[in-house]
């Protein structure tokens, strides 16, 4: 099956290795992976800021770039949710585009969800060794039902021990533009998340959304914790 990889702008800018890890995983699952070169951002920041016009412009761009694939996969629950569940609302007033958004919607998946439920990946290419704790990012959890999938994949790695943290499902305080509009509130919420995560004494905090992970990593380092690693699930599953 032909899978279009939606890299996400944060991965593009900040952590390209997550993008390559996603490709490796998808190829290990037997997919033909195509990365449209013109992709930029899904438009979520515009939509969540109340700028419908910009959100619509970017939605149309993504639809045009990705509508030809069997599936669209993103290493982010937040971006996948936006494309899958919000594009139809964004384009509700433009019937032709609405039809395209509706057609694309069921083909869009978050990476771990796709690997477990669609591609049914059995053998992982990586062999991470150590203990991890998993942060459930909000959009993936509540809108796409991402909860068991990353844990199922982690369970396939013989040397990984999952140590659940208290309140794993609580928001980390990132919230996209919220983190730069209300920095002190955002950081205070992040502190609770970090405290819960560190209490597990896991070697790494793992998640499926880079925004949350950058928030958690930034707060951890500010709290003086240089030890605990902060990793995307794709990095763990492909670790060498």
């Amino acid at each position: 099956m032909r899978v279009g990889l939606f890299v996400t702008c944060l991965v593009d800018l900040m952590r390209p290795r997550i993008g390559f890890a996603a490709i490796e995983l998808l190829e290990a699952a037997g997919c033909e992976v195509i990365v449209p070169a013109t992709q930029t951002c899904c438009g979520q920041p515009a939509w969540n800021s109340g700028d419908r016009a910009s959100a619509a412009k970017l939605a149309k761009k993504v639809i045009a770039e990705f509508e030809g694939f069997d599936y669209v996969v993103a290493p982010s629950g937040s971006c996948a949710d936006h494309i899958r569940n919000e594009y139809p609302s964004i384009l509700a007033d433009e019937p032709e585009w609405l039809a395209c958004a509706a057609a694309l919607s069921p083909k869009v998946f978050e990476l771990t969800d796709f690997l477990v439920n669609v591609a049914k990946l059995e053998n992982l290419p990586g062999h991470f060794s150590g203990s991890v704790t998993y942060h459930d990012s909000c959009a993936g959890l509540h809108s796409l039902g991402i909860k068991a999938q990353p844990r199922a994949l982690l369970a396939k790695l013989p040397d990984v021990r999952l140590k659940e943290m208290n309140a794993a499902e609580e928001c980390c305080g990132f919230g996209g533009t919220f983190s730069v509009k209300f920095g002190d509130i955002s950081a205070a919420i992040a502190e609770r998340k970090c405290t819960n995560a560190v209490a597990t004494e896991a070697d790494a905090i793992v998640g499926g959304d880079l925004g949350c992970l950058l928030n958690i990593e930034g707060k951890l380092r500010r709290m003086g914790d240089e030890e605990t690693r902060v990793l995307h699930i794709a990095e763990v599953l492909t670790a060498k």
């Binding site: 955002s186 950081a187 950058l214 930034g218 707060k219």
Partner: peptide, 9 residues
């Protein structure tokens, strides 16, 4: 606002 309370990776 970001770096008031945390580092920027």
């Amino acid at each position: 606002e970001w770096t008031k309370g945390r580092d920027f990776p």
